[in-house]
Computed example of a mutant assay.
Amino acid sequence: MPYPAFPCAAIALALLLIAGCATAPAPAQASGTIEAINHTHWAINRFSVDGRNAVDIIGPYQGGGGACCFAVPEQWRPGMTVRVDWETGASGVSNLAKEFPGYADWPRYVEWSRKVNAQKRQHSQVVPVPDYGGQETCGITVHFLPCDQLKVTTSCLTYGHPNYPIKEALRLPEPTSCPK
C-alpha cells in the first residue's frame, strides 16, 4: 500500500530544515567556567553572567563560582559587555548568622528569617569586557568590589598571579559612602 503524500512531504521538509540548521556556521568561541572573587564584607548569595548561573555562595573576601560554561567569542569587539546579576546578604559568619535559633521555636525562626531577608539586596550591572585579543581565554571571572562595582576578565591566569589583569587587593576597605 502506498504511503500518503502529505506525511512524506512533511517529513522531508522537516529533515531539510534540520539539515539546514545543523550546517549553519556558528561563531567560534572558547568555553570555560564562571568564577568570582569577592572583595567585599558581604556574602554573594548568588550571581549570574548573561543569564548563566554560577554555583557557589561566595563568602566575604573569598573566591568561588565554578559553573560551566561561559562561551567567550573568539574575537574581542569594542563595546563588548556582559550583564551580571547578583544578590548580596549577610555572611555566614555575621552576628545574624550566629543568632540562628533553629527550627524548634518557629516564631523565633520566622523573626530571624525576616532579619536575614531584610539584608538581602538584588543588583544588576552591565560591565565592559576588557580587550582579550591575542590572549588565551578561559571563561569569565567577576570581581565584586565595594560600592557594588564590578570588573571582569577572561584571563586564564589565576588571581594573584603577577600578570593577572585585575590587581585590587582581596580585602578592600569599605568606604563610608559610595559615589552615586
Rank of each mutant, 00 (worst) to 15 (best):
D131N: 12
P162N: 00
W86E: 07
E87T: 15
N95R: 12
F6I: 03
Y159D: 08
C138H: 00
A97C: 08
K115D: 10
T23N: 06
W106K: 04
K180P: 00
S124D: 05
W42V: 14
P4C: 01
A26W: 11
R77G: 00
Y3M: 01
S155M: 14
G102H: 07
G89E: 02
P128D: 08
L170S: 12
P130Q: 03
V110Q: 07
T158I: 09
P78S: 11
G65L: 15
P165D: 00
K115E: 10
D50G: 09
A43K: 08
I37N: 09
G139Y: 00
V116L: 15
F100R: 13
A9Y: 05
N163I: 05
Q29T: 12
Y164D: 09
F47P: 01
G102E: 11
G63A: 07
V93M: 14
L96H: 13
G64D: 10
F6K: 13
T154K: 06
M1R: 11
S91H: 08
S31Q: 11
Y3P: 00
N53R: 08
A26T: 14
C178I: 08
V72I: 04
P101I: 02
Y164H: 14
P78R: 06
L172K: 06
G92R: 15
L172C: 04
I58A: 08
T33G: 09
K180H: 09
I58N: 03
L17D: 00
K120P: 00
V110F: 10
T23V: 15
H143N: 09
T141F: 12
Q62Y: 13
Y103G: 03
L172I: 01
I34T: 13
D85E: 14
T137H: 00
A54Y: 09
T141Q: 12
C147W: 03
T158L: 08
A169S: 14
T154C: 12
P101R: 02
G64M: 13
F47M: 11
T153V: 10
S91N: 10
G139L: 10
R46T: 13
N38H: 07
S94A: 05
W76C: 04
R171V: 07
P165H: 09
E136K: 15
P101T: 05
P162Y: 00
W86V: 15
V129C: 04
H123N: 06
A12N: 12
Y164E: 10
L15C: 15
A19R: 11
Y164Q: 10
P146Q: 06
P27A: 12
V152M: 03
P2V: 02
P107I: 15
N95C: 01
V127K: 01
A19T: 10
A169R: 00
A118E: 15
W76E: 06
K120I: 13
E99R: 13
T153D: 01
L145E: 09
P173A: 03
A10I: 06
A24R: 14
G134A: 03
G65V: 15
C178E: 04
C21W: 14
S31I: 04
H39E: 08
H123S: 05
S113T: 01
A169M: 03
I11P: 13
A22Y: 00
R77D: 02
S31N: 08
I37Y: 15
P2Y: 01
A36K: 03
L170G: 14
F70N: 07
R46C: 02
